[in-house]
């Protein structure tokens, strides 16, 4: 079973088509990473899958049913989306924010049930943010904030989670922390993770499946080892690299050439 099946899908804005005639699938229960150069449309694609915008044409199936056949709340119980930029309103505490994730389960009378409470506690525990629950979101550090936004998505208890560059603006240790979290969610909780990542090295390490976009369509897809090689890097990123092996995990590691020799004497 696939989480998403795209059939001749066109994606973009009113005037401009970004991706045309896309046909591919995103496997269920795996970590899938969308790769591509800046402006290739990977974020637009992700936000289309996350119901943030409508596709211009074609059919998108989510869990074997047309994506637009889901009611908003119904879809929210099955998928959560974390945008790239998240700013909490002033005066909101971590717990208050994470509670919003329970919206798709609530009604006018059933505002905060035991299930809701359990889900929020689990989300806080899983992201290691229990001790921050009464802190204002605006007072958190970058890494903490990111974990809290992930907790919000987790509180939705959806099987699928889509994330747009969850590691941007984070230093390396926090990038690893977030990606480890994704890994645990996938391997321990069986969640399908779909994300856009910029760091190719880490994308190759954590992804089960990568989909590379270039020239308005899918350039190549498959496991990182099958996808990433020197021609791929040339075609997708326009960059000359040497592909070697990650000494720790054996995944592809690209070492790029610079455009200069870089052996000139530095001015002193």
């Amino acid at each position: 079973m696939n989480t998403f099946d795209l059939n001749h899908v066109t994606i973009g804005y009113e005037q401009k088509t970004v991706l045309d005639q896309l046909s591919f699938s995103i496997p269920h229960g795996k970590i899938t990473v969308l790769l591509g150069a800046n402006g290739c449309g990977k974020s637009t694609l992700l936000s289309t899958l996350a119901r943030q915008r409508d596709a211009l044409g074609g059919e998108i199936a989510f869990r074997n049913k047309p994506l637009d056949s889901y009611r908003a709340k119904e879809a929210a119980r099955l998928m959560a989306f974390m945008p790239q930029v998240n700013v909490a309103p002033d005066g909101l505490t971590v717990e208050q924010l994470v509670r919003f994730g329970r919206y798709p389960y609530q009604t006018f009378f059933k505002r905060y049930s035991e299930d809701d409470e359990r889900a929020v506690e689990r989300a806080l525990a899983f992201t290691d943010t229990v001790s921050l629950r009464d802190t204002l979101v605006s007072n958190l550090s970058g890494g903490q904030k990111q974990r809290v936004w992930i907790a919000l998505a987790l509180a939705q208890e959806s099987e699928t989670i889509l994330l747009d560059e969850p590691t941007t603006y984070l230093d390396m240790s926090h990038q690893i922390e977030i990606l480890d979290l994704m890994y645990r969610l996938n391997r321990l909780e069986g969640k399908t993770i779909i994300m856009v990542l910029h760091d190719l090295h880490l994308a190759c390490r954590y992804a089960d499946h990568v989909i590379a976009l270039a020239g308005g369509n899918v350039y190549r897809e498959g496991s990182p080892n099958d996808v990433v090689d020197e021609t791929f890097m040339k075609d997708v990123f326009g960059l000359k690299v040497v592909v070697t092996e990650d000494p720790l995990y054996g995944t592809p590691l690209c070492v790029p050439y610079s455009h200069y020799e870089l052996n000139e004497k530095r001015p002193t």
Binding site: S47, A50, R51, Q52, A72, K73, E74, A75, A76, R77, M79, A80, F81, M82, P83, N86, V87, A88, P89, L92, L97, F100, G101, Y103, P104, Q106, F108, R111, L152, A153, Q156
Partner: peptide, 17 residues
């Protein structure tokens, strides 16, 4: 209760349904 999530962002409001 449907308006309050909009105060976070349209994207998050859409995501939670």
């Amino acid at each position: 209760r449907h308006v309050r999530p909009l105060h976070i962002s349209e994207a998050t409001a859409t995501s939670i349904g």
